[in-house]
Simulated scan of single mutants.
Amino acid sequence: MRSSQSTPEITPRARTLTLDAAYTWLHARENGTVEVRRPKHIGSFNATVFSKDERFSGTLTVRYNGRQTDVAFTNPSFIPVRVSLREYVLVNLNAEYKLRPNISLFARVENLINEQYEEVFSFATPGRAGYGGVRVRF
């Protein structure tokens, strides 16, 4: 004889917040020498919020890049000199709103706090920048 038991139906709730973080500790050496452009510490944090119907989402991203060394050719003899690049933090913000399943509006701001930083010695990096548009998926 079979027993018939009713199992309560589980309805998934819409997610409203997603958090993630990452950290890297790097010990990059080549023949005992510290490699250039490889920071010892790198970290990131993301927080994404969703509306209950999941039509809207917004994400805040914070990225940390620790102090690192680079090579500069500032000497007139072109002998490479080791230089230190300072640590920096980048903050980005983006949002999306789905008008229909295949059409959405989006906007993002990169380098929100207009951090002045170098990834490579004496090369300019972007300042604050904003983007927006319509995304259509086929």
Rank of each mutant, 00 (worst) to 15 (best):
T11I: 05
E9A: 15
P8I: 11
V83N: 00
S4V: 12
S104L: 05
P39N: 09
F138S: 11
V71H: 08
V134K: 03
S4R: 07
E119H: 08
S122M: 13
A95P: 02
T74M: 02
N31C: 08
T74D: 13
K52Y: 10
T59I: 12
G32F: 09
Y88C: 07
G127H: 07
E115M: 04
P101C: 04
E54N: 14
S44F: 03
P76N: 07
N94I: 10
P101A: 02
T11N: 11
K98S: 03
R108A: 15
E110L: 04
G58Q: 11
R137Q: 13
T7G: 08
E118V: 08
Y97K: 00
K40G: 01
H27R: 11
Q5F: 09
L99Y: 01
L90S: 12
L19C: 10
G130Q: 07
T11Q: 11
Y131W: 14
R13F: 09
F106W: 13
I113G: 00
M1N: 08
R38K: 14
L60V: 15
R100N: 01
Y64A: 01
S122A: 13
V36L: 13
G132A: 14
T61H: 00
I79E: 08
P39E: 06
R128K: 04
P101I: 03
H41Q: 10
Q5C: 02
A124P: 05
H27G: 00
F50I: 12
V81C: 04
L99E: 01
E35L: 15
N111T: 04
K40Q: 09
S6H: 10
T16G: 15
N102W: 05
T18V: 15
S51F: 09
G130H: 04
F50P: 02
R63S: 11
F121M: 02
L60R: 05
G43P: 03
P126K: 14
W25C: 00
S6N: 10
R100W: 10
V71I: 15
G43T: 05
P80D: 13
N114T: 00
R55C: 02
T74H: 06
T48R: 06
F123L: 15
E110C: 06
V109I: 10
G58C: 12
V109M: 06
R38W: 03
A21Q: 01
V34G: 00
P80I: 04
R63N: 13
T16M: 14
T69V: 12
L90Q: 13
P76K: 02
P80Y: 05
D20F: 08
E118G: 01
V89I: 11
V34K: 04
D53G: 07
F78G: 06
G133M: 09
A22C: 02
P80T: 06
A47M: 01
T125N: 12
A21S: 04
A107Q: 00
